[in-house]
């Protein structure tokens, strides 16, 4: 039984280190990518896979069902709320024309009031909350 505890500790530590490395790779992507949309795609890396691996590691180290439930809630809310923020940020980036140097390959918001130089304020177009 004790051996299995040590094995669980070791696997949990490995998962924690791999989650931290995934988070570091996402941050390096944030530093190196050129514009808001690509940085947003790099930012999903620590928010989803990094948090998943880290919470799995913490659950393997703590080994209590209450803590596993709390960590599952952490993962659930993280996966629930980070797309909301990313959606709003990407929508404002599109609206204020910060979508990078080149043209977009596919622009589903093309007819919804894109401004080239930045807006004066929230537009009353009602096309969304962002």
């Amino acid at each position: 039984m004790n051996t299995w505890h040590e094995v669980a500790d070791l696997i949990g530590s490995l998962l924690l280190l791999s989650g931290a490395l995934v988070a570091l790779s996402g941050v390096i992507g944030l530093l190196r990518l050129p514009d808001v949309l690509t940085r947003s795609s790099a930012a999903t890396n620590p928010q989803t896979l990094g948090i998943l691996l880290l919470t799995a590691g913490v659950a393997l180290r703590l080994r209590s069902w209450v803590d596993v439930g709390t960590l599952a809630l952490v993962v659930f809310f993280q996966l629930l709320t980070s797309p909301v923020a990313a959606h709003l940020v990407a929508r404002v980036a599109h609206r204020t024309g910060q979508t990078g140097a080149g043209p977009l390959l596919r622009d589903d918001l093309a007819g919804q009031g894109r401004q080239a130089t930045g807006g004066e304020g929230p537009e009353p177009d009602g096309s969304g909350t962002g």
Binding site: S13, A23, L30, I51, L62, S64, S82, T96
Partner: peptide, 30 residues
């Protein structure tokens, strides 16, 4: 732009969660 900072603040929240997780795993506190 401020949007880059917004994305960075999101990632920073994720990193704070990660740091608290590492501390909780290292000291086995819940």
């Amino acid at each position: 732009s401020m949007l880059d900072r917004a994305i960075s603040i999101d990632v920073m929240a994720a990193l704070i969660v990660a740091g608290i997780g590492v501390h909780a795993a290292a000291t086995r506190t819940r």
